[in-house]
């Protein structure tokens, strides 16, 4: 809806909307991930993965939040998030719902690449 505008003659800049507009979001990535890693559906956002995350001790990488972004079709924040994971797999061992968390990251990265190549 709203485009970011740089500083103008009025002396202020305008930010983009941070609201997730579900109706204009792109759910292709979510569908790709869900079809490749069906356990993705099972996440109930307990945050266990984020709590144990090796990368999360060094940066703001947050798998639980990333999953939420995927579900809502918010791709922009995902693009950067997905590159921070070290794929160490600790999250797999703590997930109470048996989500194949590590593969979610791997498939998400794949999906984003495909999106960039218009292959989704």
């Amino acid at each position: 809806m709203m485009s970011a505008t740089g500083a103008n003659k009025f002396g202020f800049a305008i930010n983009r909307s941070r609201m997730i507009d579900y109706d204009s979001s792109d759910r292709k990535v979510r569908e790709y991930i869900t079809s490749r890693e069906p356990s993705f559906r099972l996440c109930f956002a307990c945050g266990g993965c984020t709590a144990t995350c090796t990368a999360g001790q060094h940066t703001s990488f947050n798998l639980r939040r990333m999953n939420t972004y995927i579900r809502r079709g918010e791709i922009e924040p995902l693009r950067e998030e997905v590159t921070r994971c070290m794929l160490c797999g600790k999250c797999l061992l703590v997930c109470p719902r048996g989500v194949n968390t590590r593969n979610v990251v791997a498939v998400a990265a794949e999906a984003i690449r495909k999106l960039e190549r218009n292959e989704l």
């Binding site: 941070r18 997730i20 579900y22 109706d23 956002a45 972004y69 809502r72």
Partner: peptide, 12 residues
């Protein structure tokens, strides 16, 4: 608010 994303959300 999608409290898990920490962002407001609008949906039809």
């Amino acid at each position: 608010e999608d409290t898990l994303a920490g962002r407001p959300l609008k949906m039809e």
